[in-house]
Design a protein around this nucleic acid. Sequence first.
DNA 1: AAAATAATATGACGTAAATCATGTTTTGAA
DNA 2: TTCAAAACATGATTTACGTCATATTATTTT
Lengths: 242, 242
Amino acid sequence: MSKRPDKSSSNRLSSSPPDELNHIPLLKILSSADRQRVLQDLTEQHYTKRDVIFREGDPTEYFHIVKEGTVKCVKSSPEGKECTLKMLMPGDLFCCDAAAFEGALHPGTAQPMGDVSILRMNKKSYFDMLRRNPEAAIEVIKHLGNRLNEAQEKAKVLALDRADQRLASLLVELATKNGAKDPQGIKLPMRLTRQDMANMVGTTTETAIRIMSRFKRDRLVSGTATRLIIRDLAGLKALASA
Amino acid sequence: MSKRPDKSSSNRLSSSPPDELNHIPLLKILSSADRQRVLQDLTEQHYTKRDVIFREGDPTEYFHIVKEGTVKCVKSSPEGKECTLKMLMPGDLFCCDAAAFEGALHPGTAQPMGDVSILRMNKKSYFDMLRRNPEAAIEVIKHLGNRLNEAQEKAKVLALDRADQRLASLLVELATKNGAKDPQGIKLPMRLTRQDMANMVGTTTETAIRIMSRFKRDRLVSGTATRLIIRDLAGLKALASA
DNA sequence: AAAATAATATGACGTAAATCATGTTTTGAA
DNA sequence: TTCAAAACATGATTTACGTCATATTATTTT
């Protein structure tokens, strides 16, 4: 069982230095007046990897922005199998739409991969912001469009590719979007076990381990969960579309 | 090779009877003044099943609304395998976001399943409409949110379920959302071959045929492509989550 | 530092589904 | 109506991957 979030660590933002939030595209585009207003409505929440932010089936109450850390979006089947649909990174929005429907339930669970900070806003404030500010609405449309493309690309890969290709695609995507340069290659910014990878590409932990062992032997990657390095991005790309 | 759309059948809409378009949620929410303005910018296009509306990799030029008929969204792999991501029905929007990015390319192909009518608008007019009309932007956000949920549910099913469960899920979804009552059960409104189904659930035509034969034997469905009837929706639902 | 827990590794075996092959039925075009 | 092309059907064989089992090595936690 996982603990509820530590609400004692939440706080209003109106006093925060505004430039701290400048890396969040949605906030950047607001006029400085409206931005003040929006900051009034946002609160900051802190979670650890043992918390859940919300669970599949919970009623939707807030619009969320990832401020710091990594959050995974998970769905599970009745038999307890899990599937990780998306890793959210700083600046990413979530529940930017489900909240639209009164009485809607969360279609999946949001779980921190480590320590994370989340900004959130209640439904009413969120929709008020969108109504006041068409540019913000367009920003949300862009974000949702990107998410939809990603989700459809993921479905395609799941439908057409072998497990090793799917895993290679995953590593390429993570390295490209979130990787940091490293003397040995590209380092992934979050702790990522073989089990996590398996859940992201629709296979079993054992299969993910076998494939990663092969990738390691072929000098495509090195390291394990805590420090995973992509050594040959081009090689992985080739494998992904072979 | 497929023909280009028959442009001779396109026409302005400003003279059309407005109530003909009342079944399209996005247009319904506009003020009658703004609605006139929007109708000026929309044109109607007609396509047949031998056309493509646009192809994967084409530059994005227009925002689209399905007025009549069914459109499938397809992606294909380098080796020629195809995967159908979504069936668009009347009222559905498409390319409501990709157009946002200058120079963006279509991530998939849009192909009619038969005769279809499409309303379209160029990028500039579309974004002007959104900027003038926050309610329209919110409507697009809702639509994209639904599409994202569907795409993620699809990815989950592809990741976790067997081929027969995926096919059962597909039939349940199509019957529920688009089916029409029929003396024998629920009739699906579009021509749908075993190959189409295979492409939608990430399997081969042979496997889809075998599974459908079993469904037929078990009185879950009857008929073929031209007239497909769902006879036991509850049975299919049970199978989908078994 | 020790103990407990989680992650990685590898083998043996079973099975769902792909592939290849060939035939029949249905649909649509000439 | 006839003919050609799709669509549907079914068997035989192969294969990628899941499942179960059992170690070994890393990480946390106490």
